[in-house]
Amino acid sequence: MIRRYGEPLRQGQRYRRRPGVYAILLDGGDLLATHQAEPVPEYQLPGGGIDPGEHPVAALHREVFEETGWRIAIDRRLGAFRRFTYMPEYDLWAEKLCSVYLARPVRRLGPPSEAGHQAVWMPVEAGLELLGNPGDRAMLARALGVPGRGRQSGPR
């Protein structure tokens, strides 16, 4: 069973499954995250939805580049979690299936190309507190080998 984080399910609400890939990008004691300004300002792990027919690893490279301007080297898949949420930018109630990879930033090629995103370096300890999604915080804690952060909700 995949762990669920975040908002509880809304009874009677239909959700569309939306697979996505995200990266924990570590360089020494620092984490490369993205700050998304809209719809609610928050720090996030770089990543996003997998397009139909797209391989998850190709999607991860594309999403990280769009949101940070960096090329990456993927070390390994850490795991997955899911969350149920409303995505106002798509007017969509989604069951997000989030696969998370441990990766390294290799080369900055320019600024993020995705509007509203800014690449942000922070100490990894700050990421445990600042990442806006409890699933992101829990996966970062797993990558660092520290007790989990981020409340889990619902059955495991």
Rank of each mutant, 00 (worst) to 15 (best):
E125C: 01
R142G: 01
R16K: 15
L130V: 01
F81R: 03
S153D: 10
C98Y: 02
Q36F: 06
R14Q: 12
P112K: 05
L144A: 07
G6H: 02
R16D: 14
P46C: 04
L92D: 10
G79M: 08
R76L: 04
R156T: 09
M87Q: 12
R17H: 09
R17C: 11
V146I: 06
P134H: 02
G150L: 03
Y101P: 08
E66N: 11
E42V: 01
W93R: 07
A119T: 11
L45A: 03
Q118M: 08
L78Q: 06
L131N: 02
S99M: 10
M122R: 09
R77C: 09
R83H: 14
V100K: 09
A37K: 04
E125P: 02
P111L: 12
F81L: 05
A58V: 11
V40F: 10
N133W: 01
L45D: 03
P39N: 00
D136T: 00
R14L: 11
F65Y: 14
P123W: 06
P19C: 09
A94T: 10
L102I: 06
V124N: 06
Y101M: 05
Q44D: 05
A73V: 00
Y43E: 02
R16Q: 15
L31N: 08
R151S: 11
F81Y: 15
P19E: 10
G116N: 04
H117Y: 14
A23Q: 08
V146W: 07
Y86M: 05
V57Y: 13
R18A: 15
A115F: 01
D136W: 12
E42Y: 01
L78H: 07
R151E: 14
L102R: 14
S113G: 12
I72D: 13
G12H: 02
L78S: 07
A23K: 07
P39A: 00
G135L: 07
M122T: 07
I50G: 03
G20A: 15
P112L: 07
G132A: 03
Y22L: 06
L45S: 02
V100L: 13
F81P: 03
L45W: 04
